[in-house]
């Protein structure tokens, strides 16, 4: 079972990042008075994204197996997850933080 979990470590990091970013954003916008939440949301999303990308980089550099199939799948999943994490994190630079459209 640990082997199977190692295989999907990349997407697990993506899921954790998604949960943290979405949770932190929703909670901070809900509890902080308007005008004060934006900076903390941006910071939380930024830190979470950097941490996730760093984890993925480390995971990608140490695939944990020499078996070609498992190594390749692990690596490709890590790359896809990194793209998805970056894609998600970058939104905080573009979109207004706590206002509804």
């Amino acid at each position: 079972m640990p082997l199977l979990i190692r295989l999907v470590l990349g997407p697990i990091v993506w899921a954790a990042h998604f949960a943290v970013v979405y949770g932190a954003h929703t909670a901070l916008c809900a509890i902080r008075p308007p005008g004060t939440a934006e900076a903390s949301v941006a910071m939380a999303v930024g830190i979470a994204t950097l941490a996730a990308l760093l984890t993925l980089l480390l995971a990608g550099m140490t695939p944990g197996t020499a078996v070609r199939f498992r190594r390749d799948v692990t690596l490709l999943l890590t790359v896809l997850s990194a793209i998805a994490v970056a894609w998600l994190g970058i939104t905080v630079l573009i979109v207004p933080v706590c206002t509804s459209p």
Binding site: T26, L88, C98
Partner: peptide, 28 residues
């Protein structure tokens, strides 16, 4: 299998959720 769990709010784009949250789900 994994990414499809990050999409659910795209059924709820018009419910008044903050724009940034929508952007997360749009990205996913």
């Amino acid at each position: 299998g994994f990414f499809s769990f990050g999409l659910w709010v795209h059924h709820m784009f018009t419910t008044g959720i903050p724009a940034l949250s929508l952007a997360f789900f749009s990205a996913a």
